[in-house]
Amino acid sequence: EDAPSSDDLEQFAKQFKQRRIKLGFTQADVGLALGTLYGNVFSQTTICRFEALQLSFKNMCKLKPLLNKWLEETDSSS
C-alpha cells in the first residue's frame, strides 16, 4: 500500500475535522470510539494533533486509515 503524501494527509485531516464537527463528535469521542471499534484508544490530544498536523508523518499514516474507517462507520450508521 502506498504511503499517503503529506498533501493527502493535510487534505484528509481538514476533511476529517469538518466531518467530525458536522457529525457532532468531540475529539475525545473519536479517541474513545476508536478504542471501542479497533481496540486502540487514542487520547483527545492525539486526535487534536492529528487534525493540526502535529504528529510525526509515520503516526499520521498510522492513524489515517483508522480515522477514515471510523468516518465510514459513523456515516453509515447516522
Results as ranks from 00 to 15, higher is better:
E1K: 13
E1N: 12
D2R: 15
A3T: 15
P4L: 11
S5Y: 11
S5H: 15
S6R: 15
D7E: 13
D8P: 01
L9K: 05
L9H: 02
E10T: 09
Q11P: 06
Q11Y: 07
Q11R: 09
F12A: 05
F12V: 03
F12T: 00
F12I: 03
A13K: 05
K14H: 15
K14E: 11
K14M: 06
K14T: 11
Q15P: 01
Q15M: 14
Q15K: 09
Q15H: 10
F16L: 03
F16V: 04
F16D: 01
K17V: 07
K17C: 01
K17I: 13
Q18W: 07
R19P: 01
R20F: 06
R20E: 01
K22V: 05
K22E: 11
L23R: 06
G24A: 02
F25P: 00
F25L: 09
Q27N: 05
Q27A: 11
A28S: 07
A28M: 09
A28T: 11
A28E: 12
D29F: 01
D29A: 09
D29Q: 15
V30N: 07
V30I: 11
V30C: 06
G31Y: 00
G31V: 07
L32R: 14
L34G: 01
L34D: 05
L34M: 09
L37E: 11
L37D: 06
Y38N: 12
G39I: 04
G39S: 07
N40M: 09
N40K: 15
N40F: 08
V41A: 11
F42D: 07
F42Q: 12
S43P: 12
S43L: 01
S43A: 05
S43D: 15
Q44V: 08
T45K: 13
T46Y: 11
I47E: 00
I47W: 05
I47F: 00
C48E: 15
C48Q: 13
C48G: 13
F50P: 04
E51M: 04
E51T: 02
E51W: 00
A52F: 02
L53S: 13
L53K: 09
L53M: 13
L55W: 01
L55M: 09
L55T: 01
L55V: 04
L55C: 11
L55A: 03
S56C: 04
S56P: 14
S56K: 06
S56N: 10
S56H: 02
F57I: 07
F57C: 05
K58L: 06
N59F: 03
N59I: 08
N59K: 13
M60C: 03
M60E: 00
C61K: 11
K62Y: 13
L63F: 09
L63G: 02
K64S: 05
K64L: 04
K64C: 05
K64N: 06
P65I: 13
L66E: 00
L66G: 01
L67V: 03
N68S: 12
N68V: 12
N68E: 13
K69T: 07
W70E: 01
W70M: 01
L71V: 06
L71I: 11
L71G: 01
L71Y: 00
E72Y: 08
E72T: 09
E73G: 08
E73A: 11
E73S: 09
T74C: 12
D75E: 14
S76L: 10
S76N: 08
